[in-house]
Write a protein that binds this DNA or RNA. Structure first.
Lengths: 245, 245
DNA sequence: CGTGTTATTGACCAACATCAAACTTAGTGG
DNA sequence: CCACTAAGTTTGATGTTGGTCAATAACACG
């Protein structure tokens, strides 16, 4: 999957959303992709920038975030390999959030012009992009509910469920076990908690036998209970007919 | 604006986003719109439904919401006349949120098939819809920051700023004054607070001379300070060159 | 006028933040 | 391989914010 087709995973992901014509796939692979390696912590899209390119996460793990007035960061969403995290910039001139790599990663930058032209040429591709944006919005909705209405332990449980299901779907989870490259401080920025409270909530999840962690490697011990605690129903991820239980 | 062209406001709103060709506008107005009157409190789209039509808010005020496991409601966003709140349903089969009228309202329902056909026919229209969905996403991002990172008074101040600017842009605010048809309980469902705390926070905003309210009619007394308190910058609303100060 | 809904108040409490220190881990260079 | 460092995790003590419960007051509507 590596050097040859930088957009292979994007294409694969789009196809799980909507079948693509051969022509559309060929078009994707003929795009002029500038591949850039970034390091952990690099903000490869900055809040407020006005990029002329859109990016695709080729491999690695990234997060979209915004910074509140007090300087505190809020993570808006995760991005896994194959995601196109800023289709936004295609139509909105100003990036209203930054994107930061959480691991060393490779990013593909594609000129807006080419992408727009391709989208116009292949209607199925255009639909797939739209649908993918709608799924992202659906995840944002659930995030708002999670932060607005759930307690610390529910939020964390819910977050672990979401991450597990998405990593699993992305081929990055082994059984009930996965690596989540975020510090506890960063986890707090995801669910809107202080890092101290994240720590204590994690301990509670462990104490109750729901998860197990060493370092940044986490294992789900009791999926069914974790799901119930986190009030998690994977429907909002729109991952197709697969059901995770 | 009333009987003749149910989609007049939608067209107007789309045009503030992207100029539309005459053909596209004609196409819009030839759509087969089923207009329905709903009452305050009516949930005209239910969470989990699988509608075959998309809706447009012709007049009135509506909110999109989700319900958490505990039965508590979280409001995701406001919708004003001219909004198309569920373009989602065009591509995602299951509505992952409900929509409820906050005032008596008129809703236009348009068959998915017609809308999809029209979108395919007029590229500018398709772009306008996409852009409008991206703006909604941008608002969701700010909502997540608001709920995740700000204190009660900041959240409320921010919400009033957003509502004021949007109502103003929609022609529904008079000077610094507007009607917001939500109970304090509902305001709490917007910003993730209990209704008691909403009440106390409102009092604080009044005490500090930032706003003034009688009933559901609110007036902004000190826009500049309200904006600072709420950490509000209208950029994320993408309302075009207009600047609100 | 009643009657139901919404707003307001008070008392109390739980959840979560903050601060500061100790401990662990992983990484780095000698 | 070890010492050193920096980053992240864990702990305790304490304070604040905001939630809950329950009662009362103000409105709105028929």
């Amino acid at each position: 999957m590596s050097a040859g087709q930088p957009l292979a995973r994007l294409a694969a992901q789009l196809e799980t959303i909507t079948p693509l014509s051969e022509a559309a796939k060929r078009g994707l692979h003929q795009l002029n992709v500038r591949v850039v390696r970034v390091d952990e912590g690099d903000e490869f899209i900055r809040e407020g920038a006005q990029p002329q390119e859109s990016c695709v996460l080729i491999d690695g793990f990234a997060c979209r975030y915004k910074v509140a007035g007090g300087g505190q960061r809020q993570i808006l969403s995760f991005n896994l390999p194959g995601d196109a995290p800023d289709l936004h910039s295609l139509y909105l001139s100003r990036a209203d959030h930054g994107i930061v790599a959480m691991t060393p990663a490779r990013i593909g930058f594609i000129p807006h012009r080419e992408l727009l032209a391709l989208k116009r040429l292949h209607h199925d591709l255009s639909e797939a992009f739209w649908k993918s944006a709608l799924i992202q919005a659906s995840i944002l909705h659930e995030t708002i509910v999670n932060i607005g209405r759930r307690t610390a332990i529910q939020r964390m449980a819910h977050m672990f469920c979401e991450i597990y299901v998405r990593l699993q779907h992305n081929g990055q989870a082994d059984r009930r076990s996965f690596r989540l490259p975020l510090s506890q401080a960063a986890l707090g920025e995801v669910v809107g908690l202080s890092c101290v409270h994240v720590n204590r909530t994690l301990q509670q999840l462990r104490r109750e036998g729901l998860i197990e962690s060493k370092g940044r490697h986490h294992t789900i011990r009791d999926w069914d209970r974790l799901r119930r605690v986190g009030d998690f129903d994977a429907a909002y991820l729109h991952l197709g007919p697969a059901n995770f239980e």
